[in-house]
C-alpha cells in the first residue's frame, strides 16, 4: 500500500501552515474563540435541554406536546 498520496496531502497542509505570516495570528484567534465557545460557553450555559432531561424521543415529544396543550408536567 502506497502512502505517497496521504503524505503529499500532509506536506501540503504542513508547508502551508509553516509559511503563513498573518495566518498564525488568525489561527490563534480561531483556537481561542473555539475554546471559549465550545468549552466555556457551551459547557457551562447551553445544555441541550430535551436531550439532558429525557431519555428518548417519545418522552421528548410527550413533553413538547404537554407544553403545546398548556398541560403542566
Amino acid at each position: 500500500m502506497s502512502f505517497a498520496w496521504p503524505r503529499r496531502v500532509w506536506e501540503f497542509y504542513r508547508d502551508g501552515f509553516r509559511s503563513m505570516r498573518l495566518g498564525k495570528k488568525l489561527w490563534l484567534l480561531v483556537a481561542i474563540k473555539l475554546f471559549v465557545l465550545f468549552v466555556v460557553i457551551k459547557w457551562l450555559f447551553f445544555p441541550d435541554l430535551l436531550k439532558t432531561r429525557f431519555h428518548n424521543d417519545r418522552e421528548r415529544g410527550a413533553f413538547v406536546l404537554d407544553q403545546l396543550t398548556h398541560t403542566k408536567e
Partner: peptide
C-alpha cells in the same frame, strides 16, 4: 481575516436553539 474571525459565530445560534428554544427546536 474576515473568514477566520467570523468562523463559528453562527454555531452559537445552534446552542441557543437547544437551550433557550428547545420547544421550537423540537
Amino acid at each position: 481575516i474576515n473568514f477566520a474571525i467570523g468562523l463559528a459565530t453562527g454555531i452559537i445560534m445552534e446552542f441557543e436553539f437547544g437551550t433557550n428554544w428547545s420547544n421550537y427546536s423540537w
